[in-house]
């Protein structure tokens, strides 16, 4: 079948750069209260629309469409991709106005007869075409201490014990692939670039409810300031956008309840 694809083209951005993650930039990890980038974010993508026509099968992935366009029509078309089946998180973009993974969305999923629109994620600076700067997103990730902080006074020589029930308490948030579909679907982020955002809350949840972790209070502190969980307006955009089916709004609710319980 012939399809029409409209891609938001953004020429290479002068001044685009990336910070090195790690020791030299560790000052950024101080907390969510500080502005993470200071870069202005645009609410609509810059650039222009370019229209392509091509043959595709209904079962083709949108990533197949993009790769065929790049390979056969226009090598300048620029996007990220790697695994091609929804587990690496590289190719989250806006498809027909919704955040999805290009490799997990098939042509037939998008309804027949109308042009397919492809845009970069909203709320992160665009580097070129469908590629956005991930650094502000990763800064939010780092702000919630996204690693196990265990009681190391008695590290056993074998595994720490954890019951299947304790494991089930946080298992859903271990599925996160850091694709940014959730955070960049959130209207709160679009107007407030310093909002911690749903992805960081998912990754806080993953450790707060892990029976082996002892640092819930530190993460609650990072999440309770003005840019934290209380800014969530429960619009469910994140839940709808998540390609891993993590019930993110529910997850944020669990964090809020735990934070209230801890404060009482």
């Amino acid at each position: 079948m012939e399809i029409t694809v409209k891609v938001r083209r953004v020429p290479e951005q002068e001044g685009a750069s990336r910070s090195v993650v790690g020791a030299e930039s560790s000052g950024e990890m101080a907390g969510a209260a500080q502005p993470r980038t200071g870069k202005a974010r645009t609410s609509t993508a810059p650039g222009y629309w370019q229209t392509y026509h091509m043959e595709a099968k209904p079962t083709d992935r949108i990533l197949d469409v993009l790769m065929a366009l790049k390979s056969e029509q226009d090598g300048t078309l620029t996007f990220r991709r790697s695994c091609g089946h929804g587990i690496c998180g590289s190719d989250a973009i806006r498809i027909n106005g919704k955040n999805r993974l290009a490799c997990k969305t098939l042509v037939k999923d998008l309804g027949p007869g109308r042009a397919i629109t492809l845009e970069p994620l909203k709320g992160l600076p665009v580097v070129k075409d469908l590629v956005v700067d991930m650094e502000p997103f990763l800064a939010a990730y780092r702000s919630v201490l996204p690693y196990l902080i265990a009681d190391t006074s008695t590290t056993p020589t074998t595994e720490r014990l954890q019951s299947p029930q304790e494991h089930a308490r946080f298992e859903k948030t271990t599925k996160c692939i850091l694709c940014a579909a959730c955070t960049t679907s959130c209207p709160v982020l679009w107007t407030n670039p310093d909002y911690t955002g749903p992805m960081a809350m998912v990754n806080a949840h993953r450790f707060v409810f892990d029976s082996r972790d002892v640092a819930a209070e530190e993460r609650f502190a990072a999440l309770s300031d003005g840019e934290g969980v209380w800014r969530c307006r429960t619009t469910f955009n994140c839940t709808e956008a998540c390609p891993r089916d993590i019930p993110i709004t529910e997850v944020i609710g669990e964090l809020k309840r735990a934070m209230i319980a801890q404060a009482l």
Binding site: L148, E159, H167
Partner: peptide, 20 residues
Amino acid sequence: AVVDLEHMGLPFNRTPDGRI
């Protein structure tokens, strides 16, 4: 190697008695 990963935080599935 596996116990190290568990200590780093890896969420392995568990047996009823809490082992990997």
